[in-house]
């Protein structure tokens, strides 16, 4: 039985992530009074790209060629080591919060290097902007998880998700504040509004798209898929660490199924929130983003301050 759970744990993120992107796009289209593409369109896109030949710049080095595999591989590994539908993983695999944060940073590192590698002006600026945002988001990211680690007494992510949330507990308000901080980081790290516009190739606004501009064919498919994975990973972190209910506590078939359905439900809520957000606000000017990230950090500081009175 655990083998089956591990298989589900391993493939759940890459299997569901394109669907998530399709859902957000579809919801946004509906909100904008458009028909919108099918929610399965991202799968078709990836399949199509995977069967195309590719063009690689003559200036590119092995970093550019290897980066998609590394970036994608890292999202798979991280996806498998965070709580998705159960909190059973404790002790089986390393899912320390700092390890997860820094492993994700390794992906960002190679993505940014790949952006510089081809010598295109777009790629370099994309990397510069990406590193700027991720450098500023790091504080909020670590501290929002730290607030949880302090309330639950462990930095293990499965450990954090194993302790049920109580509405009447004094840790409720700090958790809520930490969640607000985390949500800002989520938007920043996964290149959504108001940090980045995932739908455009206009050079003034793009960050993530600028870095992967030179990719084509299979490598582009991997990059797109990896970024969908990353969105799902962050959403799963937000859903399962801050709202840890209905997670499977044993490996019984029924409990696991409930866990998976609960997971999908929570993800749906998050994605709907992102879609509504993206339809209702505009992208911020680049130099206003630090304010937003600082707010995320301050939320977490307040949360930790409130923990004083536990």
């Amino acid at each position: 039985m655990p083998i089956i759970i591990w298989t589900i744990q391993l493939i759940l993120i890459p299997a569901l992530s394109p669907l998530g992107i399709g859902l957000i796009k579809n919801m946004k289209a509906k909100l904008q009074n458009r028909q919108g593409a099918s929610i399965f369109q991202p799968y078709r896109d990836i399949w199509k790209l995977l069967h195309k030949d590719e063009v690689v710049s003559v200036d590119a080095s092995w970093i550019f060629r290897c980066a998609p595999y590394i970036v994608f591989g890292i999202t798979i590994v991280v996806g498998a080591s965070i709580p998705l539908f159960s909190s059973l993983g404790q002790g089986i695999i390393s899912s320390d919060m700092l390890l997860v944060i820094y492993t994700l940073a390794t992906g960002t590192f190679f993505l940014a290097l790949a952006g510089i590698d081809t010598g295109s002006a777009f790629g370099g600026f994309g990397s510069s902007r990406e590193m700027t945002i991720s450098a500023l988001a790091e504080g909020g990211f670590i501290f929002s998880l730290l607030t949880l680690a302090l309330t639950r007494g462990t930095t293990n992510l499965f450990g954090i998700s194993a302790i049920p949330m109580s509405l009447y507990d004094q840790s409720f308000l700090p958790t809520l504040l930490a969640f607000l901080g985390f949500f800002i980081v989520l938007l920043a790290e996964t290149a959504r509004f108001p940090f980045d516009n995932p739908a455009t190739h206009l050079e003034l606004t793009m960050i993530h798209e600028a870095m992967i501009l030179e990719y084509s064919g299979k490598k582009l498919a991997l990059m797109e898929w990896a970024s969908a994975n990353k969105l799902l990973i962050f959403t799963a972190l937000g859903a399962n660490l801050f709202f840890p209910f209905a997670l499977a506590q044993s490996s019984m078939m029924g409990v696991v199924l409930i866990g998976i359905f609960a997971f999908i439900f929570k993800i749906l809520v998050f994605y709907a929130a992102i879609a509504v957000l993206e339809s209702s606000i505009s992208k911020f000017r680049f130099f206003r983003l630090p304010d937003l990230l600082l707010i995320s950090f301050i939320f977490n500081i307040i949360a930790i301050g409130l923990l004083n009175y536990l």
Partner: peptide
């Protein structure tokens, strides 16, 4: 708390710093 915050921001900035150091030195044309 302040020290942990400083260390967290330092980590992020160090990453940016060495993407720059490696990227600008060895990559592109």
């Amino acid at each position: 708390v302040t020290s942990a915050g400083a260390l967290a921001f330092t980590g992020g900035l160090a990453l940016a710093c060495f993407v720059k150091a490696f990227g600008v030195t060895f990559l592109a044309r």
